[in-house]
Amino acid sequence: MHSNCLDCDNMTEIIEVKDIVKVYRNGVKAVKGISFSVSKGEIFGLLGPNGAGKSTLLKMLSTLLRPTSGTATIDGLDIVKDAGEIRKRIGLVAEKMILYDYLTPYENLKLFGKLYSIEEKALDERIDDLLKTVEMDKWKNERVKNFSTGMRQRINLIRGLINYPEVLFLDEPTLGLDPHSSVEIRRLVAKLNREMGITVILTTHYMEEVDALANRIAIINNGEIAALDTSENLKRMISEEKVLEVKITNSAKAIESIRELDCVRDVSSRDGELRIYGQGENFVDSVIDRIKSSDSRIISIKEIEPSLEDVFIKLTFGGE
C-alpha cells in the first residue's frame, strides 16, 4: 500500500521547507531550523515524541503560526506572504478537533464549505460524497454532540477535505481512537492519497502509523530532524537496536567498561538503573561479562523492547 509513490524522486516538489525556526513568546524554541521537501502525491510522516515540535511545524505550514525565521513554500507560494492563496489549497486536520458539537455533520461541513466559497449545489453534492466516503451518510443530520470519538474524527477528517485540497495536514489523526478506528482512518488517508492524489503531511507518535502510510518519515526530536528516510530503512534501524535494563551494585565503575564495548551504542543511568543500548548477537553476553569482570553484582536484568523513545534517544543524544 505504501509503495504507490515509487517515482517520488522524479516528481515535482510541492512543499519546500528551509531552515524554519519557531521561538514562542515565552522563549521556548519549539522548532530549531528544519529543512525538508515533499514531493507531489507523497505521504510524508513526521514522527516524534511529545513536545518534539511536530504540531508547531504543522501550524506554521498551515499558516496558523508565523515562523520566527526561515521560509517555506507550498506550490511555490510563501507561507507568510501568500497565506491567503495557500489557505485555499490546503486542508487541516488539527490536533484538536475542529467540530461543533451542537451542529450536525451536514451543518459543520456546510459552514466550512461556505467559508471556502464553494457554490451551493456543488457543496451539497460534495458533502454527500464525503459523508459516504467515511460511511457517515446515515448520520448526516444528527448532532455531533452524541457521536463517539471515532465518528467525530471521521467528520473532522472530511471537514479538512471540504475544499478538495492539494495538501492535507494531519496532526495525530488517530489520537484516542481504538485500533479498529485507527486502521479505518489510515485506510481512508491512503485512499485519498491514491485516488485524489492529495499530498499528505502526517504527524504521529505511532511507528505503525507511518509504517503503514508514509513514503518517507522525518523523525523529529527537540525541534530538529534526527533522521529522515523511508520507513523501511528506519524500521531496520529500530529493529536492530537492543536495550538492556540492569540493576547492579557498584555501577559507576561498570559503566565505563561497558561503554568501551563495540556493540554498545549508549549507556544511560537513571536512579541506579542502567539502560544499555546496542546491537549484535553477542550484545547481551558481552555486557554481562563486563559487569562480572568489574566487581559488580547483578541485582536484576531484563531485555526490553526498544520503544520509539529509545530510538529518539539513540538518534539525538548519540554518545551522551
Binding site: 498551515s62 499558516t63 496558523l64 491567503g84 492563496e85 489557505r87 485555499k88 490546503i90 487541516l92 488539527a94 490536533e95 484538536k96 478537533m97 475542529i98 467540530l99 461543533y100 466550512f112 467559508l115 471556502y116 466559497s117 471537514r159
Partner: peptide, 13 residues
C-alpha cells in the same frame, strides 16, 4: 482554547 478557531484561521477568509 478548544482549537476550533483554527478552522476559521486556516480558511481563506
Amino acid at each position: 482554547d478548544i482549537g476550533t478557531m483554527n478552522g476559521f484561521l486556516a480558511a481563506p477568509i
